[in-house]
Amino acid sequence: MAGTDGFTDFFYLSKDGLRLHARVYGDGDHARTPAVCLPGLTRNVRDFHELALFLSTHPETPRRVIAFDYRGRGASAYDPNWKNYNIVTEAEDILAGIDALGISEAAFIGTSRGGLIIHMLAAMRLSVLKASVFNDIGPVVEAVGLAHIRSYLENASPAATFAQAEQAQRAIHGADFPALSDQDWARMVKAIYRDENGRPVADYDPALVNTVIALDLRQSLPALWERFEALRAVPVMVIRGENTRLLSTGTVAEMEQRHSGMEVITIAGQGHPPMLETGDLPERIARFLAKLDKSPSL
């Protein structure tokens, strides 16, 4: 049963022995496909809290929702070897987690890095993917977007208060997110930072930044079209921020050509990545997932 906050904490071991964390929201109807939420590079389960609550308590289609903390993020253990912070290892960790939860198939909602992990899962265990929602990510990652991410991670300064942390996030991302309200910014900051005696601390292993510093942005990252095409028979939704630097309109157009029936949503006034709890996105995601549900037994 979910706790008073709408979720229960679930811990499990990776194949190399790290203690990893997930949140499990709701019990749902087991005839309905569970949803698995995968966050961005430095992000954690709190990014999905409002969406997970909405989906798990939906009046018509409540379902179980599982949000994962990758190794080195949130409540998961840090890895002593930062080179293990890679999408292949993290995909293996997700498979270990869903196996521990007894999940054979699910709808996956992947924000940024989470979407890259979905591509890995398509190669590792396609059968687990009942549907895929890509939040501002596709088979081609734009170098200009990666350069922006590397710049603000490398130059991040500690904040003494949550108000200062919010000011910093607005300074970095404000031009890309004019649609966000004060409440949205406050919620974003609470998701990014953990509270240590009133002081905000970025909730990830600082060594994780090494993975971005190590990238040679003079060369394009390998495209993942072959793995994306493995999803031809899997329902796909793509959510793109109007002001994103990571997912180009050209890549989205190519995705539509290669995947007949793909649903595309562009979010006005937001950049990378759109906040999934804003506007009508929760209900649109709920309707997309509802198409997957098994007919109730008669």
Rank of each mutant, 00 (worst) to 15 (best):
V144R: 07
L215I: 12
A163T: 12
R125H: 05
D136E: 09
I117P: 00
R218P: 06
E154T: 09
H148Q: 11
I149G: 02
V140P: 01
A175E: 11
M124T: 05
M124G: 02
V201E: 13
V189P: 02
P206R: 09
E142N: 02
A186L: 11
G174L: 08
T111A: 05
A160H: 11
A223S: 11
Q167M: 15
N135P: 05
G138A: 08
W185R: 04
V212A: 13
I192Y: 08
N155Q: 13
I109T: 02
N135Y: 05
S132W: 06
G115L: 01
I213Q: 11
L217W: 07
A160W: 10
I149D: 03
A143K: 04
I117L: 05
T161E: 09
D203T: 05
G198I: 15
D182K: 07
H173G: 04
P178L: 03
P178T: 03
I109C: 02
Y152W: 14
A156I: 10
D176E: 14
Y193S: 07
D176V: 05
L215H: 05
S132M: 12
G145R: 00
F177L: 02
Q183D: 14
S151D: 14
R170D: 05
I137K: 02
P158V: 04
A143G: 03
A163M: 12
R199V: 15
M188Q: 14
I192A: 08
K190S: 12
A191G: 12
A202G: 12
V141D: 00
D182T: 07
L129I: 14
D216S: 12
M124C: 05
A191F: 04
G138S: 04
F177C: 01
P178G: 02
G198D: 13
H148M: 13
H173K: 06
G114M: 00
L217S: 04
R150M: 13
G198H: 10
Q219W: 08
R170H: 10
A159P: 04
A147D: 07
A179H: 03
Y152M: 05
S220N: 09
E154R: 07
A171E: 12
D195S: 08
S151V: 07
A163F: 13
A202T: 11
H119M: 10
A207Y: 09
V144E: 09
A156W: 12
G114D: 00
R199K: 15
G114E: 00
P178M: 05
D203A: 11
S220C: 11
R125V: 04
F177T: 00
R194F: 11
G198T: 09
S112C: 08
V133C: 07
K190C: 12
V209H: 09
W185I: 04
V209N: 10
I213V: 13
N210E: 15
E154F: 11
S112P: 03
V212F: 14
L129R: 03
D203W: 11
I137P: 01
D195K: 06
D176P: 02
S181N: 08
A207M: 15
D184Q: 03
A168S: 14
I118E: 00
V133A: 04
N210K: 10
F134D: 00
V144D: 07
I172T: 12
P158H: 06
A160I: 10
Q164R: 09
A168M: 15
T111H: 01
A163K: 08
R194Y: 12
L180K: 02
S157Y: 11
L126F: 06
